[in-house]
Simulated scan of single mutants.
Amino acid sequence: MNTAIEHDIKLTSFSHGGGCGCKIAPGVLAEILKKSSGFPVPKELMVGIETADDAAVYKLNDEQALIATTDFFMPIVDDPYDFGRIAATNAISDVYAMGGTPIMALALVGMPINKLPLDVIGKILQGGESVCAQAGIPVAGGHTIDSVEPIYGLVVMGLVHPSKVKRNADARAGDKLILGKPLGVGILSAALKKNALDAAGYAAMIDNTTKLNKPGRSLSDLPGVHALTDVTGFGLLGHALELARGAGLRARLNMSQVPLLPQVQNLAEQGIVTGASGRNWSGYGNDVKLADAITPVQQMLLTDPQTSGGLLVSCAPESVQEVLALFAREGFAHAAVIGEMTAGASGVEVDA
């Protein structure tokens, strides 16, 4: 019996929003960052906030650049061990999304100490540590506070050769877009909250959200891979739009090629979606052109916030098979070509 059942604790009942669906809406975030004060940027800072990339990158020397990132959120599931695993996998993903190798993590922990049993909190931390062990890194410290809602995540640091950094802004016209994981995590988590998710659906969600995006390390070695990011809280459309804006290109997606997690289509058709989907569309919908055949349900799928989502790769057409083979070797059976980058005004187009 798991700890959550022993204590009759529903972790999701403590949080107003779970996983990457907690992110500040993209339009609001853009307004906040627009008002942030400028500061002289050292020449060693290779990647900062300019293109909303996955992590910061600082050049240490001619052979090494330091990757630094942080990610944390409220519970997306009720099982504390699974929550810890998901949050850790999500945080480490940002290092892989830059083409790097993680080397160390620090834990970020905020818990309602008077409401959650200490062994439940311990299970959350153990879940995170188990994923760090899979990634081959220690949890070397961290910071804890007593908070109203449970919050858990990591600061993660990694290393990459300066010439192999994979930014989200370097896509080229003619590149193919490959998505490493299927979509639908937000919808499955919404179904879980409504007690509408069966055991098979839960297992699929956990498998997807706890699969480390390790292919990112090897993708950095491929010259044909031009840009890389991971799909998280802003949904596939939001992160494809970041690629397009960063490169000054247009991303064209084919809805029929986008992989989905089991049950997601049916659940969305039943109206089980997240509030973050609507906030995402409100934040960037003006820069997205949907084909007339795209249904409201499909729009929700494309804006569905992904927690610990897949890598989105922009690569030369001649590198597609090599990239897909790399994903397959790492156990990402659903990786698929979903579109391409084209010349034109920055934005996203979606065909049926």
Rank of each mutant, 00 (worst) to 15 (best):
N2W: 12
A4K: 10
E6I: 15
G21E: 14
I24Y: 13
A25T: 09
A25M: 11
S37T: 12
M46F: 07
I49S: 14
D54L: 04
A55W: 07
Y58E: 08
D62N: 13
I67E: 08
D79Q: 09
F83W: 12
N90K: 13
S93L: 01
V95D: 07
Y96F: 15
A97I: 05
G99P: 03
I103E: 10
A105L: 02
L106M: 14
K115L: 15
L118F: 13
K123I: 03
V131T: 12
V131G: 02
C132G: 04
A133L: 15
Q134W: 06
G136H: 06
P138Y: 10
G142T: 08
S147M: 13
L154H: 13
L154N: 13
G158N: 07
P162Y: 10
K164A: 12
K164H: 10
R167K: 15
A173C: 05
G174S: 05
D175S: 08
K176V: 05
K176D: 06
L177T: 00
L179H: 01
G184W: 04
S189N: 14
K194L: 15
A199F: 11
A200W: 03
Y202C: 09
A203M: 12
R217G: 04
S218Y: 15
S218L: 14
H226V: 03
F234E: 04
G238W: 01
G238F: 02
L253G: 00
N254K: 13
M255K: 08
Q257N: 13
Q257W: 00
Q263P: 05
S277N: 14
G283L: 07
D287E: 15
D292C: 00
T295F: 01
P305I: 04
Q306S: 03
Q306T: 00
C315T: 12
A316W: 05
P317T: 10
S319D: 12
A328P: 02
R329P: 09
V337W: 01
V348E: 00
V350K: 00
